[in-house]
Amino acid sequence: MVSESSGQAVGAGALLAILRDGQARTRAELAQLTGLARSTVSQRLDALINHEWIVPTQDTISSGGRPATAFAFNRSARIVLSADLGATHARLAITDLGMTVLAERAVELPIDRGPEPTLTWLVTSFKEMLTETGHRLAQVCGIGIGLPGPVEHASGRPVNPPIMPGWDNFPVPEWLGERLTAPVLVDNDVNIMARGEHWVTSPEVDHLLFVKVGTGIGCGIIADRRLHRGAQGAAGDVGHIRATSSVDALCRCGNAGCLEAVAGGASMAAKLRDTGLDAANSRDVVRLIRAGNALAAQVIRQAGRDIGGVLAAVVNFFNPSVIVVGGDIAEAGEHLLAGMREAIYSRSLPLATQHLSIRASELGDRAGVIGAAVMVVEHVLAPGTVDQTVMV
């Protein structure tokens, strides 16, 4: 219990954090949980009601006397705009504060067209979606963006992204913020996917890895139920760890033998093209798998082994309890997962794999936009931020 007498301030934001679990509570219950006086609780609840963060519920709670009003988190108080921009396609969404998707749009969109054309399209699309759903920009509490390259999270700027020409150090938050008049948060695409998958499907898991296998390969790290970015935001960049099966494969980062160059979707597509098959990108690889092409199955299973070989070292080092695999190539099903499991279970320590679960993403293509929305909501509804907003 955090109370006034403990020397720690319990502001309106702390009350909102309690109510965000979905359970309605009365003033008396909140006073008992926080140690605040009933009058203080009432004052802070009034401030939250004035800003529409909470609402009185229709249900009342009686203990034999006068029925007491209960208060609940208002998931509809604001909306969030989110975008997951990949190497070749984009997915946008509008969500409420509980991560319910209110509108969604997915298109083919090459990221190498540059920042201003891409972000101009993004602004136009968001405004169209707001109109279609009957919402206004004034209702937007924040915008979350995922980019397919390294991002300095503090500034929201891409840093030397290998597949994003023209994006290096581009001021994405400022550029979008000026046009959409809301706070903008930017992160690497696999980080937001890790956030989304953990929030929706595995909130009870303390240590989770989310591995995206698409055009490239990346890894999002959940440690102690929090996203771990590292000192400069480069944590989890497993795609540029040296693989062992083809050390001469040239990577777009300039090095040879990177996992991405050996087992990424672009590499798989190139291997299939060399045999005469029609495979321009990672989605074509999945199409061939679904059509029952045996060579595609061999290529993707070997890619799974290569990825698993690198992840085996990560498993020994980090000891996660769950590895979730997402991205385009994950849609190929068990072929990829079988190769990964084969390498991880044979090369990792028995203690590290004793209770390890390796599974496909349950959110699929939605993991990124949900995770971007989570990033925004966790920022906007942080107790300190709420306290500054309601000024109580």
Rank of each mutant, 00 (worst) to 15 (best):
G233F: 06
I222E: 13
S82C: 06
T133R: 11
A279V: 10
T57K: 04
V380H: 12
H240T: 04
E174K: 09
L227T: 06
T244Q: 14
I143M: 09
A279Y: 01
G333K: 01
P203R: 11
L102V: 00
V205S: 15
L122T: 14
I217E: 09
M268A: 07
R225H: 15
P165T: 03
R273L: 05
A360C: 08
D206E: 15
Y345M: 12
T244F: 12
E108F: 07
L180S: 04
V200K: 14
T88S: 15
Q23K: 15
G309A: 06
I94H: 08
V238D: 09
R195A: 14
V213M: 00
R75W: 12
S282A: 15
V140W: 12
G134N: 03
R347F: 02
E204V: 08
L288E: 04
D59E: 11
L351R: 12
D59A: 10
P165A: 01
V200H: 14
V151H: 08
R179L: 07
E342R: 03
T215S: 11
H198N: 05
A382Y: 10
A154L: 12
V392K: 03
E204T: 13
V151Q: 08
T131S: 15
D168E: 05
M340C: 02
S62L: 04
E334T: 12
I49H: 03
W53H: 12
I221H: 13
V314E: 10
L119Y: 00
P183Q: 07
A31R: 00
D306L: 01
S267M: 01
K127R: 14
T181W: 09
R305Y: 06
V376C: 08
D365V: 09
T133H: 01
V315E: 08
A194H: 09
G146I: 04
L15E: 02
N319A: 14
A72T: 11
G7A: 04
G65L: 07
A24D: 04
K271G: 03
Q388A: 15
R113F: 11
E362M: 12
L250T: 14
R283V: 10
G114M: 00
A382R: 13
N316R: 08
S76D: 15
N188T: 02
V315Y: 10
G265H: 03
R75L: 13
A270G: 05
S5M: 06
R157M: 08
A106M: 12
V10W: 00
L15Q: 04
N74P: 07
L337W: 05
G371D: 10
A37H: 06
L250K: 14
V376L: 09
D187W: 06
A31E: 00
Q32R: 09
M391H: 13
V205F: 07
L30H: 00
L137H: 02
A291Q: 14
G149I: 00
G22H: 02
R290E: 15
L208N: 10
E108A: 11
A37I: 01
W167C: 06
R113C: 10
N160C: 06
A372C: 08
G220T: 05
P383R: 09
T244N: 13
A72I: 12
Q8I: 15
